[in-house]
Computed example of a mutant assay.
Amino acid sequence: MNIVILGSGNVATHFAHNFHNKGHKILQIFSQQKVNAQALAFAVNAEAISNVSEINKEADLYMIVIPDHAIPSLIETISTAISGIVVHCSGATDIQVLSKFQHYGVLYPPQSISKNDQSDFSLIPFCIEGNDSITFNILMKLMATVAPKSIACSSSQRLAIHIASVFANNFTNALFQISYDLLQQYDLPFDIIRPIILETAQKVQSKLPSQVQTGPAVRNDEITIKKHLNFISEHDDWKQIYQLLSQEIVKRKS
C-alpha cells in the first residue's frame, strides 16, 4: 500500500517504520517543521514535505498522526481531491471529523508510544473504524500485516478505551510519582517498591482487578487509614487522592 503520513512525532515514527518494514511504500512524510519531516523521511525512503499543497493525491492511505487539538485545522487544509482513505489515530476524536472525505476511518493504538522506545505493533490491539464496510475491511487487511490483534471499534467504544487507558496508565504513573516523592522525603529509594508495582501489573494480566485488590481500604481498616492520612497531612492533595481512592475501594467491596 502507498501511504502518506502527516506527522513526524512518536506515533508517526512507529507507524512509518512498521509499515516500511512490512513492505508498504511510504510516499511522503509531512511536518510543518521540514527538518522533522526530513529526519523520518530519510529513515523510510520517503519524500519530506512541509506544505499541505505538496501532498501526493494518488496515495492509497493518508494518515493524520498529530496531537488531537491540531487534527480539525489540518483536515480543513487537505484537498478532497485525494483518492485514498484518510484516517486519524486519535482515541478521543470522533470519526466524523473526517466526513468531508469519501473514504475515511481510524487506526488507534491504545498504547503509550515513545519515539525512542521499541513498540511491538504485533502485541497491540489497534482499534479500527471505517465509514463503510469496504473502507473498514481495507483498513483491517492493512493492519493485519503489522498488528494482527487489531479489533473493530466504534467511536464511542474507542473513547471508552481511551479513558480507561488514562486511568490505567496516566493516572497510575502519577501515583507512582507521588510514591517516589514520598520515599525521597524519607531518604528511601524508589527501587524498594518496584517489586510490588510489577507484582500488581502481573496479577491483572490473568485476573480481574477486583480479585487482587489489597490494602487497608479493602479490609476497612480505619485505624491504619487514619494513621496514613495523618502521616501525609502536610500534603493536602495527596490526602484528597488517598481518601477518594480509599472510598472507591470501600464502595466496591461493600
Rank of each mutant, 00 (worst) to 15 (best):
I3L: 03
I3T: 07
V4I: 14
I5M: 00
I5F: 00
S8P: 01
N10R: 04
V11H: 06
F15Y: 15
F15L: 05
H20F: 12
H20I: 03
N21Q: 11
N21V: 00
Q33G: 02
K34R: 10
K34S: 05
A37S: 09
A39F: 05
A39R: 08
L40T: 00
A43L: 14
V44Y: 01
A46D: 02
E47T: 07
A48L: 11
I49D: 00
V52T: 12
N56G: 05
K57F: 06
D60Q: 09
D60E: 14
L61R: 05
L61S: 04
I64V: 11
I66N: 13
P67T: 06
D68L: 12
D68H: 06
D68K: 10
P72W: 09
I75A: 15
I78H: 15
S79G: 13
T80W: 04
I85R: 07
V86N: 13
H88K: 09
T93I: 14
I95D: 11
V97A: 14
S99D: 12
S99T: 05
K100R: 09
H103Y: 13
H103R: 12
G105C: 08
V106H: 06
V106I: 14
L107C: 08
Y108Q: 07
I113N: 07
S114I: 04
K115F: 01
D117W: 01
D117R: 01
Q118A: 04
Q118E: 04
Q118I: 00
S122C: 11
L123M: 13
I124G: 03
P125T: 00
F126R: 03
C127E: 07
I128S: 12
G130P: 02
D132P: 00
S133R: 10
I134K: 14
A144G: 10
A147F: 10
K149T: 04
K149W: 02
K149E: 12
I151S: 14
I151K: 14
C153F: 11
S155M: 09
S156D: 06
R158F: 12
R158S: 09
L159A: 08
I161H: 09
I163N: 02
I163Y: 04
I163F: 03
S165D: 03
S165Y: 01
S165H: 03
F167I: 01
N169M: 12
N170V: 05
N170T: 06
F171T: 01
N173I: 02
N173R: 01
F176Y: 07
F176R: 02
F176I: 01
I178W: 11
D181W: 01
L183G: 02
Q185S: 15
Y186C: 13
Y186T: 10
F190M: 15
D191C: 09
R194D: 04
A201S: 11
Q205V: 02
T214N: 10
G215D: 12
P216C: 15
V218M: 11
D221I: 08
D221H: 07
T224S: 14
T224K: 08
L229Y: 03
F231H: 08
I232W: 06
S233P: 02
E234V: 06
H235I: 05
H235L: 08
E248A: 15
K253I: 06
S254W: 07
